[in-house]
Write a protein that binds this DNA or RNA. Sequence first.
DNA 1: CGATTTTGACCCGCGC
DNA 2: GCGCGGGTCAAAATCG
Length: 313
Amino acid sequence: MSNETKDFYNYQFPSSFSLYDMMNLPTSAPSSYGNNGFDLSSYSFTDCLQSSPGAYDSLLQKNFGLSPSSSEVFNSSIDQESKRDVSNDVTGETPTRVSAPSSSSEADHPGEDSGKSQIRKRELAEDGGEENQNSKKVGKTKKNEEKKQREPRVSFMTKSEVDHLEDGYRWRKYGQKAVKNSPYPSRSYYRCTTQKCNVKKRVERSFQDPTVVITTYEGQHNHPIPTNLRGNSAAAAMYSDFMTPRSFTHDMFRTAAYTSGGSVEGALDYGYGQSVYGSVNANPNSSHQNYHQGGEYELLKEILPSIFFKQEH
DNA sequence: CGATTTTGACCCGCGC
DNA sequence: GCGCGGGTCAAAATCG
């Protein structure tokens, strides 16, 4: 981590800190963004969060007593959409997408339902629809009703050399597909091995930045972590904070993210309530206290500025 | 030997 | 209707 970045951590944000303000911070944004104008179209979320891993580190330490591993989350999003959007973020897509997801909902949900109905058809055609097997896939038969019942999704961008980050849960790989337009091999599909838990996750490497792994979780675990939380990956901590009941709900986050009604303007406003950007290097204790004062909510708000959230409907 | 991964086939939605 | 891309299945292979 560069000294410049560290300086950035120590910067005391004004109470009404905004994305625009950020552009004028000393050393925070890449020079390519220009000194005067702030070009939304060229500003990537990645760049933004890359500047704030300090807060993330604190989260890790606070919640898990972990120190950051070799991998670090520097971008994330709660999303009902495909990671396609995340990828776009990396490329510096305009944040407009944040509040206008409809434009790219193409890869959204077909996954589950399609696959299930597919089986049904296969069975009907071949076995004549055996009941036994069906029972196992009955859940899929109800597809129509719950057709579009979407699972909450969370995407993380993690700087890591390993594709599959240890997050404490056990996963079974059930598929792999080549990603078009990507020099990097493929996207992997995993399912939680715990029976009755249908949480899925997708892992792929950003072709924009090969060092970055994009992990997308879908659904919520209905069971505790089966193994000791020895996995000290960034994704584990982030995912836990998003998806575990004792922490924050999806809606809470959305509320936090869209205090201004979900407009683009509102979403772009970071709305940092307090200047508690912890300094990982200088004074961990004081920053830790700050986080307690602000509470997890405040902490997470810092880590995940509202522009990273995407609205669901 | 059970659990997991690999991998080709398959289905579905969508755009043309 | 066709082709494409995304997601899933499931048999075979591999692993521990």
